[in-house]
């Protein structure tokens, strides 16, 4: 089995890739995609911890993350569709109407 520290470092790197994606990209589809990567990195850390102690709790947490990710994607993609219909763009910076 791979050492837990290495799995955690990989999870951290994946999380950072997702965080950079959220910060750098301005297309909302890519921001949601990067959020999925960040959630996957958290799930990987949970699984690694569960495997380290030989307990099923890590996988239970993984399933809860899965449920959260599924509901997040469903609502967020509904928002994307509304955004595309109303503003005819997927750029998050051009939808800052609340500020005005």
């Amino acid at each position: 089995m791979p050492p837990t520290e290495h799995v955690l470092v990989l999870a951290l790197m994946l999380f950072c890739v997702g965080a950079v994606g959220v910060l750098v990209r301005r297309n909302i589809i890519f921001i949601l995609l990067s959020l999925e990567f960040m959630m996957n990195a958290c799930a990987m850390a949970f699984i690694a911890a569960g495997a380290k102690w030989g307990q099923p709790d890590g996988q239970v947490m993984f399933m809860l993350i899965l449920a959260i990710a599924a509901s997040e994607v469903a609502v967020a993609l509904g928002i994307v569709i509304q955004m595309a219909r109303r503003f005819r763009t997927l750029d998050v910076d051009s939808v800052s109407e609340l500020r005005e």
Binding site: M1, P2, V7, L10, L14, N40, A43, M44, I47, A48, G50, A51, G58, Q59, F62, M63, L66
Partner: peptide
């Protein structure tokens, strides 16, 4: 990532992934 879950001894999580 599913392959990594499998290698970590969590086949069910890999399938769900």
């Amino acid at each position: 990532i599913a392959v990594i879950f499998f290698l970590l001894g969590s086949p069910f999580a890999a399938a769900l992934q």
